[in-house]
Design a protein around this nucleic acid. Structure first.
Length: 805
RNA sequence: GCCGGGGUGGCGGAAUGGUAGACGCAGCGGUCUCAAAAACCGCCGGGGGCAACCCCGUGGGGGUUCGACUCCCCCCUCCGGCACCA
């Protein structure tokens, strides 16, 4: 090769090519999807929330990986639908707006503009922008409200009192999924329990179905596992205990170990159980009330020393024994029935509590020494009346049968998943479309009156009173009941923005229609999503909610199938500066804009896809870009210097077909890094041909086409320069023929006792006996055998011959 | 504590149970240049040897196998998630 490009080659200016082709693609609507296409393929990426920060490199990584896949499918002839939008409502944006003293509507509109125009389009995504959604646009949230009304009408949305997570800093209720380790997912404040009337979506109604359907889904295994754990199915029994000495006549507890019932020595009511007062014995009221006031706020660390005897007693349903009733914070008031039977001999926490408060510990399952430590394993039942000697596994069923006979208990399946609280006492969200009538209670806003527009208010900051700032808009709040016309009040809470994002993918195909949420034909043609790729952090939030919504809307007849995503893959995490996710606080955020301005979008895309297996993520390294930058320079030169129309050459055809196969496999399995390696090798090969004056046009075309999903701009330019008509992104993908990729000659490794001692070449497919003969004939092999007899020969065709002496 | 995923050159990483380290970065040597940069060519796990070559090597220890980065068991370690769920 010469040291500088021949004079007739233009200098490669990647940022200029980005600008040129992005403009032309927009003009020619290259990525506009034929919504009536014969081979629909719905390729989905998680839409971003345009909070104050710009998109960072992690977003670019996520989007590029999906785009490569979508582009590949498009080149293979599918009608690929690759839409994008903005999840612009929510606390993220609102809090930032409060911080900078700007209205969230102004702020998010500006951010959306920047994201779309300066970053997402700049990356060269093959997105059909004509189907963009913005969750803050009334033309979108009108239908979010419609979705809520469908759930309301179906009885899947309920206004009820309940214990809820309250963030004292964000001044709003949070969903369970937004509480991490007892703290607010967003601000880290310790979450408090409050009893408020809230809107619940009955996700638990589909708990079993969603659990069962996981088995049938083609999803990343780790994502399915996270959902399985979150739904948290457990089997056991509900057991009723009669109570004496308090207001309540009885209490029901849940246990997964009914076989240990004979070992129950006391009951514990959750300290945050809303009905705690009803369990308190006469004469204990004041001491219990004082104890309760002195409790520390919800904390992740359980303290078994904390607890109080409530002074009432429970009657054991089988033995008739009197058991003391206690209250303690180690029992959750909101899981199961909010109360437990304590079996200290066979439960870690009950044992600790019993020790701390000198309560009796009884062994009812053999296998350990319950005075020293609790035995939670299986064994034979003892101290259990007629059931003594029964294996504990069988005992579970036997005890349930006995309870059922006495009407004191029954088999029960308990889920850890709880209903989704979707009301938020904040400003920046879609108002829940409900009117509270003194006569009719909560009434849905008639669908014809949608959208319920978010009203202007003087101050959009949260009030902290448990009421949304929307309550300040008196004219807006006071309306007649849609049924009877009585003076009524609008619901002033807005919905959780996970409701906005829970159905956005259903809306994309139907954005052409303003008079319906989901067009029947479009929805039946395009749903479910064929390929969804996104971050694993949404395993139990967005991915659970959207599965619920799809299932509910399917049962109501609005969508064709209950599961929203045919395939889901969780991509890996991009890290920088050691371990951990990129975040502003760690100071390890990379801004993609600078790199695109310097090296062009193709170089960035290529490097991101090369730095590690896409499903596993990898470490960003500033110097890594150089390798791909050099590669694109070499591609630019060698492709334009190929001028031979030769086609029959066996070895170079093999190389070409081998590369097609390698790139196809790498994209289909989302191991983009190995596909790019194969392209490097092909390019080096072509470079050698060009130096010898025989670079083939067919190789140049193939290289350009295979590289196109990763580097869409330079390949489009080269395609044009090669004199090809139309866009490379719409040209038919090169066919690969396995027969033409097969090597006629292979190298056989010869091992003696498993160690490599020689190699020789032979025709592919040489039979085993012939391989053995050839291996023994190798002079080096004879040296190593040194006259020792060969005990065994293991020939493997086209691979290896192992000689055992 | 429980669950999941990892541990391979200086670094990122390759490898249907069959020649470990493809591809890229960094480094070293060379070509070109007054010089430097860029580009191009070559070398690039460790140890030994003048050399042909030899020995060791995929977190540690066992095992299965003609043959193990790959399969099985135990341990160490890193990352991520969940975490009082009765």
């Amino acid at each position: 090769m010469t040291n500088s490009p021949p004079p007739h080659l233009d200098r490669l200016d990647l940022p200029a090519l980005d600008e040129k082709w992005q403009r032309i693609w927009a003009e020619r609507q290259t990525y506009r999807t034929d919504m009536d296409g014969k081979r629909p393929f719905y390729c989905l990426m998680m839409f971003p929330y345009p909070s104050a920060q710009k998109l960072h490199i992690g977003n670019a990584y996520a989007f590029t990986g999906v785009d490569v896949y979508g582009r590949y499918r498009r080149q293979r002839g599918d009608d690929v639908f690759e839409p994008l939008g903005f999840d612009a409502f929510g606390i993220h944006s609102e809090n930032y707006a409060i911080k900078v003293g700007e209205h969230p509507a102004v702020l998010t509109a500006r951010n959306v503009e920047y994201f779309r125009e300066k970053q997402l389009k700049r990356l060269g995504l093959g997105v059909d922008w004509s189907h963009e959604v913005d969750t803050t646009d009334p033309r979108y949230y009108r239908w979010t409200q419609w979705v809520f009304l469908q759930l309301f009408k179906a009885g899947l949305a309920e206004h009820r009192q309940g214990p809820v997570n309250w963030c004292p800093s964000c001044l709003t209720v949070l969903a369970d999924e937004q509480v991490v380790g007892g703290r607010c997912e967003r601000c880290g404040s310790v979450v408090e329990t409050r009893f408020l009337k809230q809107w619940f979506i009955k996700t638990t109604h589909y708990a079993q179905e969603m659990l069962d359907a996981l088995e049938t889904l083609d999803w990343s295994e780790r994502t399915k596992l996270a959902q399985r754990n979150w739904i948290g199915r457990s089997e056991g029994a509900l057991i009723d205990f009669r109570l004496d000495g308090c207001a309540r006549p009885s209490v029901t507890v849940f246990t997964t170990r009914p076989d240990t019932l004979y070992g129950a020595t006391f009951l514990v009511i959750g300290a945050d159980n809303p009905h705690l007062d009803e369990f308190v014995g006469a004469g204990h009221r004041e001491s219990v009330a004082a104890w309760r006031r002195g409790l520390p706020p919800t904390d992740a660390e359980p303290d078994f020393a904390v607890g109080i005897d409530l002074g009432s007693t429970a009657v054991h349903p089988l033995t008739g024994a009197d058991l003391p009733v206690w209250a303690a914070p180690y029992v959750l008031g909101s899981y199961g029935t909010g109360a437990i039977m304590a079996v200290p001999g066979h439960d870690e926490r009950d044992w600790q509590f019993a020790r701390a408060h000198r309560l009796p510990i009884v062994e009812v399952i053999t296998g350990g020494d319950v005075e020293r430590e609790p035995w939670t394993g299986e064994g034979s039942m003892v101290n259990s009346g007629a059931l003594d000697g029964t294996p504990s596994q069988d005992g579970r069923r036997r005890v349930v049968e006995m309870l059922e006979a006495r009407h004191a208990g029954r088999f029960h399946v308990q889920f850890r998943l709880r209903d989704w609280i979707i009301s938020r006492q904040r400003y920046w969200g879609p108002p829940l479309p409900i009117i509270h009538c003194p006569v009719h209670g909560p009434v849905g806003v008639p669908e014809a009156d949608l959208p319920v527009l978010l009203p202007e208010v003087k101050d959009f900051r949260p009030l902290g009173t448990g009421v949304s700032p929307l309550a300040q808009a008196a004219d807006w709040v006071n309306v007649p009941c849609p049924i009877c016309g009585e003076p009524s009040r609008r619901e002033t809470d807005v919905n959780d923005n996970f409701l906005d994002s829970g159905w956005y993918f259903m809306r994309y195909p139907s954005t052409d229609f303003d008079d319906r949420a989901l067009d029947h034909d479009r929805t039946w043609r395009w749903l479910p999503v064929d390929m969804y790729i996104g971050g694993h952090e949404h395993a139990v939030l967005h991915l659970m909610y959207s599965r619920f919504l799809m299932r509910a809307l399917c049962d109501l007849g609005w969508v064709p199938v209950p599961e929203p995503y045919r395939r889901f893959r969780a991509h890996g995490l991009l890290t920088f500066g050691g371990r951990g996710k990129m975040s502003k606080s760690k100071g390890n955020v990379i801004n993609p804009d600078d790199y695109m301005a310097r090296f062009g979008a193709d170089t960035l895309r290529l490097y991101l896809m090369f730095l590690g297996p896409y499903l596993e993520g990898g470490e960003w390294n500033d110097d890594g870009m150089k390798g791909q930058s050099r590669f694109l320079e070499r591609v630019w030169r060698c492709v334009q210097l190929c001028d031979s129309d030769e086609s029959g050459d066996g070895e170079r055809e093999r190389r070409r077909h081998r590369t097609i196969a390698a790139v196809e496999r790498s994209i289909e399995e989302l191991h983009y890094n190995t596909g790019i390696s194969a392209l490097h090798e092909l390019q080096r090969g072509i470079d050698g041909d060009v130096a010898a004056g025989r670079g083939r046009r067919i190789d140049a075309r193939t290289l350009v086409q295979l590289l196109a999903p990763f580097a869409p701009h330079i390949t489009e330019e080269l395609w044009e320069r090669l004199g090809e008509a139309g866009s490379v992104h719409l040209a038919p993908w090169p066919q690969h023929d396995p027969d033409l990729a097969a090597e006629p000659r292979v190298t056989i490794a010869v091992q003696v006792n498993g160690k490599l001692r020689a190699t020789f070449d032979c025709d592919a497919g040489t039979p085993a006996e012939e391989l053995s003969r050839l291996a023994l004939a190798q002079p080096r092999v004879q040296e190593f055998l040194a006259g020792r007899g060969v005990r065994k020969i293991i020939p493997v065709v086209d691979r290896v011959v192992n000689l055992v002496v």
